[in-house]
Design a protein around this nucleic acid. Sequence first.
DNA 1: AAGTGGTCTAGACCACTCT
DNA 2: GAGTGGTCTAGACCACTTG
Lengths: 252, 252
Amino acid sequence: MKTAALPRQQPPGKSPAFQPLYRQIKALITQSLVTGEWRPGEPIPSEIELAGRYSVSQGTVRKAVGELAEERVLVRQQGKGTFVATYAEERSQFPFLSINPDAEPMRELGAELLGLERMRDPVSARLLGMNATASVFVLRRILKINERPACYEEIRLPAARFRGLTTGVVEQHECMLYSMYEARFGVRMLQAEERVKAVAAPPEVAAALHRVPGTPMLQIERVAFTYGREPSELRRCYCDSQEHHYRNAITG
Amino acid sequence: MKTAALPRQQPPGKSPAFQPLYRQIKALITQSLVTGEWRPGEPIPSEIELAGRYSVSQGTVRKAVGELAEERVLVRQQGKGTFVATYAEERSQFPFLSINPDAEPMRELGAELLGLERMRDPVSARLLGMNATASVFVLRRILKINERPACYEEIRLPAARFRGLTTGVVEQHECMLYSMYEARFGVRMLQAEERVKAVAAPPEVAAALHRVPGTPMLQIERVAFTYGREPSELRRCYCDSQEHHYRNAITG
DNA sequence: AAGTGGTCTAGACCACTCT
DNA sequence: GAGTGGTCTAGACCACTTG
């Protein structure tokens, strides 16, 4: 059986930047996602078509698509095709939400919008990889789990990426912010990093969650990333953990 | 090219319990790990040998081993072989540790043993999947990060699995409990689930960590699982989050 | 040089979905 | 029945490690 006489972008061996063929294919597919050639919810070409397009075997395409599927960038459905992942129709509700009720199951998520403003904030701008003078949107809301207030959230978004954001847009999508980001602004969040601390609730947070000031609460700081690991959202969340907890599954 | 005329343990199709061949191979390999045929740190047979042993192709073995490597049950080393994962020589220090210093990098982990007792505890026994009258070891200690006290931990272990545990054994392995479990008792932890809350520090915890009672602290409850997802360790940790935080990376 | 895992191909058959 | 992803095989070549 003859071997692929295909042009490799990097010769194997010494080169530190060498990537196997399937990684190169993976990068090409990712590129098509970034440029919007295939949009969330849409099918991408079949494996056989992609193999032809990139002049590699189906197996190589499978390995590239497999990694993207593992990262939940793509979703494979046997018999139907491979689709760009989307929050819109996904049954995997509540992306990135680690807060759960202690006793009951999570039934319903709601949000009460407190305010939306646009401002300059050099610290946030830096964390979002922007120029220090760039504007950010600041959105404050109360998260309700099973109809009880659970969290006070402050969300910071780069104004450049979210041009035209209004309270109307937010209210239209209720609590499904990530679904809104994707549908209205084409920004899909893929990863997030959180830092959790225990703090005494500041007065305005305590008031909003109907607790006495100073109640111990979880303070959760999150940075969320889009394609290419670009930071595109900052959150600071104060969570009342008297009836809720932060859940995490760790693997070795 | 002829197709495998091999005995499948489950005919494909309707059967809900059907598992592809590589999963069956994976189960057989896992079995050999459970029985101790291959022990932590040791190499398992080469892919070609395994293919012969199970009468499948190397590709099928690769897929089974690949999944186990992803789950960090096995470790592949190009040119050398495939090894059973172990904490002993691993550079991946501090398994399951989510606490990090805010400012400095994590340099050094230390522990001060407060006590070890054996007792009956029906609640813990139930969580560990044991008979309610079974005994558990209770181990209390203070975790020090970069030489500063950071956490107060209570650890509960099933006495049956950890027969012969003494303070001497614990002190000999210092803070490396998981490495000790593996080396002394053949119990390797693979997964853990944590629930985090913010609470006011109880008096004895506050005293141990040199804080005033009532200081907000993270309360982290953990269940850790061995092969086959058997719960084998319970932890409750109070963590002073004034100079530390709980870190979590979430993926989609 | 021999042995190991890592990549890639080519082709077969299967299960599933849709028309 | 046609098309899709899912599994499995067989064989080639590569990179890496060890003697």
